[in-house]
């Protein structure tokens, strides 16, 4: 079903949310993506993806303490859920299977 499918950006962001645990919020994710993946994603896209992930129950969110550098507005921290972890893991397993095939069939590129 479409709901369970993870898009490429969705996967990436879900992964980042997990890797930043428990301090994952949109600007941090953005920076992380730049740093680790050298990939620029605009804030609004990240928000969209996060909302979509939340509606698929792959992440859950909570408001943190308000900080002065945000004009007193609270951060919304995202946390990966077991379902999220499971679907990431599934995806990784499927990929690994494919990788294995690739390595066995075309070993010369290794």
């Amino acid at each position: 079903m479409k709901g369970d499918h993870l898009g490429e950006l969705e996967e990436l962001i879900l992964l980042t949310v997990g890797s930043l645990h428990p301090h994952a919020y949109a600007p941090a994710i953005k920076d992380e993506l730049v740093e680790k993946m050298n990939r620029k994603v605009v804030l609004s896209s990240i928000h969209t993806v996060l909302n979509r992930l939340e509606s698929k129950h792959f992440v859950k969110s909570d408001f943190g303490e308000s900080t002065p550098e945000r004009g007193g507005k609270r951060k919304r921290y995202f946390e990966i859920t077991p379902e999220g972890f499971k679907s990431l893991q599934e995806l990784k397993l499927k990929r690994d299977a494919l990788w294995n095939n690739l390595l066995t069939l075309v070993p010369s590129y290794k």
Binding site: P27, L43, H47, F63, E69, R70, K73, K75
Partner: peptide, 16 residues
């Protein structure tokens, strides 16, 4: 419901 988060995020971005 989304405003606080988004505007806050954006303000942070802006300062950066």
């Amino acid at each position: 419901e989304l405003y606080e988060e988004i505007s806050g995020d954006m303000e942070e971005e802006y300062n950066k």
